[in-house]
Design a binder for these strands. Structure first.
Lengths: 251, 251
DNA sequence: CGAACACTTGACAGCCCTCAACGTGAGTGG
DNA sequence: CCACTCACGTTGAGGGCTGTCAAGTGTTCG
C-alpha cells in the first residue's frame, strides 16, 4: 500500500505553473484571500510561488493516508476528495466529501500527522501548500492569516453538523441540500448535479446502512422531492427538501 | 435574556491582574505557547497584557450566546463550560464540555458570530483574549500563531469523534475515558472525579435519552467497571472501559 | 416540611440495521 | 453482437437497540 502524493516533492507529478494563474485560481479556496482588498500584487505573487499543482489523480488514488507525516494542506481544484477512517471493526467512516474550492489537511496540524485518509473519487486536481511556508507567509500577510483561521473555524462547525441524532430523512436532506449549496457557490447548478460517490459511501458518511440510503432516496422520489437516476440528481421540490434539512443545517 | 460576558468591556467584572501571573497561567491553554522554548520574556509579557480575567461566573451564567458578535476567544481557567445549541424542536444539543485549560470560541471566527451558546455549569473563571489583538500579536510571534493553528486543528478532530454511529455503551465509555484523560492532563485524578453536568446534559451530548444514560451507568456499575454515586465517579476497571472506548477514541 | 428537580426503573414501540435475494448497468471477452 | 461477470443498487422480512411514556425514588433547597 503506497502512501499519498502529499509528501514534499518536486518531481514530475507537479505541473509547471501555467501563464494564467489568475483565472486558474479564481475558483480556489484561497482566491478570496488573494483577490480581496488588502492583498497587493506582490503578496499574490508570493502565494502563487508557494503553490504546487498536483494531479491529475485518478479515482482511487490517495492524497494522504492516516498516520502520514503532515507537511502540507491542499485545495481541491477539480474533482471530489473523500476523507475517511477505518474503525476497529474494519468499517469505513466517511468524514467528508471535499469539492473544488475546499481545503483538506487542516485537521492534521494538531499532531503533525494526517488523522485520516484522503482519496480521489474521480479525476482530481490539487493545489498543494507547504504548511510551514504558508504559515510563515501568513505572519507577513494578515489577510492570509485571517483566511486560514476562518477556514479552520468553519471546519470545526461543519464537523459537528451531522453529529446530532436526526432521522434518516433529515440526514439525507441535509446532505443533498449541503451539496447543492456548495456546488452553487462554485458556479455549478444547485438543482441538477451528479453524485461522485456511491450509495455505500453516502451511507458511511451519514452513519446509516446502504439499504437505508437507497430506501430514503426512492421515497424522496416517490414523494416528488427529487428525481434520481443512478447518480444523476435533480431536486424538484427545493422548499420541502430544505424544510427537512433545516433541523440539521439550521438555515 | 441577557447576553454573555464576552463583549468588549473594561468594567468591574474584569479582575485586576494579580502579581503572580506565572503560576496563575501555568494550567492555561496558552501556557505551552507562553512557556515553550521560543518565546522570550517580552513576548510572554505582551500576551499577558492582552488577557482579561473574567469571573467568577456562577452556574447558569452565559459566556456568550448564539448570534452574539464575535470578538474574543476564552480559555477556561476554572470550572466547566458547556457549549450547546437549541434545535428547531426546542431540544438541547450539547456540543462540548470545556474543562480548565481548554479554549472556547474558536468556531466563531468563521462568520464573526458565535454559532452556539456557552454557559457555566459551576463556578467558572475565564481568560478572555480579544481575537483581533491576539491575531495581530500572532503575526509577530510565530509560536503563538502555530499554537492557535493547533488549537483549532484539534477542535476539528474532536468535533468528529462522536459523529460515528456507536452503541450507547461505547459512547458512554468514550465520554468517561475522554473526561478522565483531560482531567489527568491538568493534574486531576484520572480515576476519581466529579461530573459537573447532569445525566440529561450527558445524554444531550451523547445524543441519547437521559434514561439510556442512567441505564448504561447502572450497568457499568453492576459489571464492576466503575462506581458512581450521584455525580461522583470512580473508575474501577480502566482497561475494560478503555477497550469499550477504543472504537471511538482510536487510542 | 414541601416542592421542584434529578435520577432510576419498567413496559412498550418504532426506527433502522442485518440478512437475504433480486435487479441493473457497465465493462470484458468470445 | 451477445453472453458473462461483477459491482452497485433495490426491495423485502425480521429483529435489536434505544427512544418514549409512565411511575416511583432520592436529593436539594427555600
Amino acid at each position: 500500500m503506497s502512501s499519498g502524493v502529499m509528501f514534499p516533492r518536486t518531481d514530475a507529478s507537479i505541473l509547471a505553473d501555467d501563464g494564467d494563474s489568475f483565472t486558474f485560481c479564481s475558483t480556489c479556496a484561497f482566491s478570496q484571500a488573494c483577490m480581496s482588498s488588502g492583498m497587493d500584487k506582490s503578496a499574490l505573487a508570493e502565494l502563487h510561488v508557494l503553490v504546487e499543482h498536483i494531479g491529475p489523480l485518478r479515482a482511487g488514488e490517495h492524497v494522504f493516508r492516516e498516520g502520514d507525516p503532515f507537511g502540507a494542506i491542499a485545495a481541491v481544484r477539480a474533482g471530489t476528495v473523500k476523507t475517511y477512517l477505518i474503525d476497529a471493526d474494519g468499517r469505513e467512516q466517511v468524514l467528508g466529501f471535499h469539492l473544488p474550492g475546499e481545503v483538506i489537511g487542516l485537521n492534521a496540524i494538531h499532531d503533525d500527522r494526517y488523522p485520516c485518509n484522503a482519496v480521489a473519487l474521480d479525476t482530481v486536481m490539487l493545489c498543494r501548500f507547504s504548511f510551514p511556508q504558508i504559515a510563515l507567509l501568513a505572519t507577513r500577510l494578515p489577510n492570509l492569516q485571517q483566511h486560514l483561521f476562518k477556514l479552520m473555524s468553519r471546519d470545526i462547525g461543519v464537523a459537528s453538523l451531522f453529529a446530532g441524532d436526526h432521522s434518516a430523512d433529515e440526514r439525507m436532506a441535509a446532505f443533498l441540500i449541503g451539496l447543492s449549496r456548495r456546488l452553487a457557490l462554485r458556479g455549478f447548478s444547485p438543482r441538477r448535479f451528479q453524485l461522485t460517490m456511491s450509495r455505500t459511501e453516502i451511507a458511511n458518511y451519514l452513519r446509516q446502512a446502504p439499504e437505508t440510503v437507497s430506501r430514503v432516496l426512492r421515497r424522496f422520489e416517490r414523494d416528488g422531492l427529487l428525481a434520481i437516476k443512478q447518480r444523476d440528481v435533480e431536486i424538484l421540490d427545493l422548499p420541502r427538501l430544505e424544510a427537512l434539512a433545516l433541523t440539521i443545517l439550521r438555515h
